[in-house]
Design a protein around this nucleic acid. Structure first.
Lengths: 253, 253
DNA sequence: AGTAATTTGTACGTATGTATC
DNA sequence: TGATACATACGTACAAATTAC
């Protein structure tokens, strides 16, 4: 018996020409041979260098473009531009996950609590003075907002600043995505709230307290306030079981 | 003076033909009009329906394909296959950011702690008996593993079961992705560990304690154990500042 | 089993609008 | 302003692969 019983072969799928082009360009960007701000050769030159047709080059460029890695404009003699690395791709994938995987509001809120607690915790210790000023500005915008839309926008900016102050990019991206999806899910219900003013005033009060805790450097307090606020704000939209599970995260996390 | 001083115009960038095709297909998948396992029309039919050339259709298909949404094979008369959601895209974009130093190991570990704490917390209360049996099986596999690779694989299965027991799909997917990326980042360093046996034994012991807490329904204890374990396991790879920040999350979260 | 039909993968040519020099 | 090089989009053609009869 040949000594091949330990090796495991994997199913091999055909590698298309455009994929090899994409891989080479991606590799060049990963190794630093191609840096943001630099240019790729023109399509005609690429098709000469890779030895493929124009269609193949274009398919590869479209894939790179949709991934947020390059941007090509018609008529640009310098060739496609290599873009700086941004979490746009991460955000798109997260968005798809949140929207496509039929997530429940309860799951999204659980996740928001998991994100916001640590976000406040870290922000209370890591925040710069500029970020503190941004939070003040967002709070002021919320106070001055007369319409729900403007209020909601300022609220989003406030949370975004908190997330950025945590110094963790994953928290920033996930918070943006999850917050956005949650707003989409309850958009209808929130608009027909009986007393939008009282809700806004209450939210404002919670934010003031949390911001004060952040300013004082009391991360644990800020985190607890944030979790409780989130629960109170959204609990009405959940079933009794879901409320219970969410409560666990609020009190014990 | 015309009453146009309140409107804000945004810079408009050209929308390519292939982008509109991609958007329509993505939208159909998001709304559920196109479900996994179903087929897209053939390229020729697509080019008739969208009123664009085949090149454009193909560029759109390549983008969708690279995003893991569809798969097209040569000669398939049924057309491109609509794939079920996979976290591959999420993992790829996260890995890219990590490789490009836009995402530090410290951030990833922070995030893992944020995920695993609540995962254990929820799992301790929500787990079914079958999931508990799965955890036992994974633990047994870890005990029997002689090589690091098998041990690591069983460890991954253990954490995955915990995540699934939490009942939150976002936790499941994010845990898988982040865990995988962390393993990629420290793959080299871990292999040359001086005493892999002692590390494995220690990890095993931690897992036993955490599993016991889950079995007993003590979510708070399980979560604390998980956070501490994670810190002890990876702290060596972090700078002093990063260790301090991580410690905050371990103790106060 | 084998053949025919259809589809994808790739290549090449062309017209048009655009950005840069 | 004009000239040049570029990207966009369309159309055609042929080889390779797959399915169905």
């Amino acid at each position: 018996m040949a000594a091949t019983n330990k090796v495991r072969f994997q199913a091999v799928e055909p590698v298309r020409a455009y994929q090899r082009v994409v891989e080479q360009v991606e590799q060049a960007m990963l190794t630093g041979a191609l840096k943001p701000g630099e240019r790729l050769p023109s399509e005609r030159e690429l098709m000469a260098q890779f030895g493929v047709s124009r269609s193949t080059v274009r398919e590869a460029l479209r894939v790179l473009e949709s991934g947020g890695l390059v941007r090509s404009r018609p008529g640009d003699p310098h060739g496609p531009l290599v873009l700086p690395y941004s979490p746009a791709g991460l955000r798109k994938s997260m968005s798809r996950l949140a929207q496509l995987d039929q997530l429940s509001l309860a799951e999204l809120l659980q996740f928001r609590i998991m994100l916001e607690g640590p976000a406040y915790l870290l922000a209370a210790r890591m925040r710069t003075d500029e970020q503190l000023a941004e939070m003040d500005a967002a709070l002021a915008a919320m106070e001055q907002a007369s319409e729900l839309a403007a209020f909601s926008e300022a609220d989003l900016a406030f949370h975004d600043t908190i997330a950025r102050a945590s110094g963790n990019m994953l928290i920033v991206v996930c918070s943006q995505v999850v917050h956005g999806v949650v707003l989409d899910m309850i958009a209808g219900k929130l608009a027909q709230s009986p007393q939008p003013e009282s809700v806004m005033a209450e939210t404002l009060d919670h934010h003031r307290q949390a911001l004060a805790a952040v300013r004082a450097g009391d991360g644990a307090l800020a985190a607890r306030l944030a979790r409780e606020k989130l629960y109170e704000y959204y609990a009405d939209h959940l079933s009794a079981d879901e409320q219970t599970a969410l409560k666990w995260l609020v009190s014990e996390a």
